[in-house]
Computed example of a mutant assay.
Amino acid sequence: MAVTTTGKMNTRISFWNKETVTNEETGGKVTKLVEKGKFFCAVKTQFLSELQARVGTKYEDTVTFILRESKSSKKIDMAWVLKYQDKDYEIVDINPDPERKDFLVIIGKRK
């Protein structure tokens, strides 16, 4: 059974990574967020029973994002920051689909 359909993947999210770059004005090194990629995804609705089951676990207050699995989505790193609706999310878990290789499920927790 498919996790979602591609027609529901209409929400834009982006991934960012902290990198040390050279400040063009001063020539010094600074750490800043650099965008690594943008993807369309489906955001899974959580039912009350799911919310209650997650209380007290690392999945409490998380959002599930479903992406189309591709070469670029396979490069997503747990250390990256996910941005959705102008809010930052820590990546809690990345679940590839080993059987069908259609979708990539990413669980994010708001920072």
Rank of each mutant, 00 (worst) to 15 (best):
M1S: 11
A2G: 00
A2F: 06
A2W: 05
T4C: 08
T5Q: 04
T6G: 00
K8T: 00
T11C: 09
R12C: 00
R12T: 03
F15S: 01
W16H: 10
N17I: 03
N17Y: 01
K18H: 13
T20R: 11
V21Q: 11
V21I: 15
V21P: 06
T22M: 08
E25G: 00
E25R: 08
T26Q: 13
G27W: 08
K29H: 08
T31V: 14
T31N: 13
L33R: 12
L33S: 11
V34L: 10
E35K: 13
G37W: 05
F39S: 00
F39E: 01
F40C: 00
F40W: 11
F40S: 08
F40D: 07
C41V: 12
V43M: 01
V43E: 01
K44W: 00
F47L: 05
F47R: 10
S49Q: 09
E50W: 03
Q52V: 03
R54C: 06
R54V: 04
R54N: 14
T57G: 12
T57H: 13
T57A: 13
Y59E: 04
D61T: 06
D61A: 10
D61G: 05
T64F: 00
F65H: 09
S70N: 03
S70T: 13
K71D: 12
S72A: 11
I76Y: 01
I76C: 07
D77C: 08
M78V: 10
V81T: 15
V81L: 13
L82N: 03
L82G: 02
K83G: 00
K83R: 09
K83L: 04
Q85C: 09
K87G: 02
D88P: 02
I91Y: 12
D93W: 07
I94A: 10
D97V: 02
D97Q: 11
E99S: 05
E99N: 07
K101A: 09
V105I: 12
G108W: 03
G108N: 09
K109R: 15
K109W: 15
K109S: 15
K109L: 14
R110P: 00
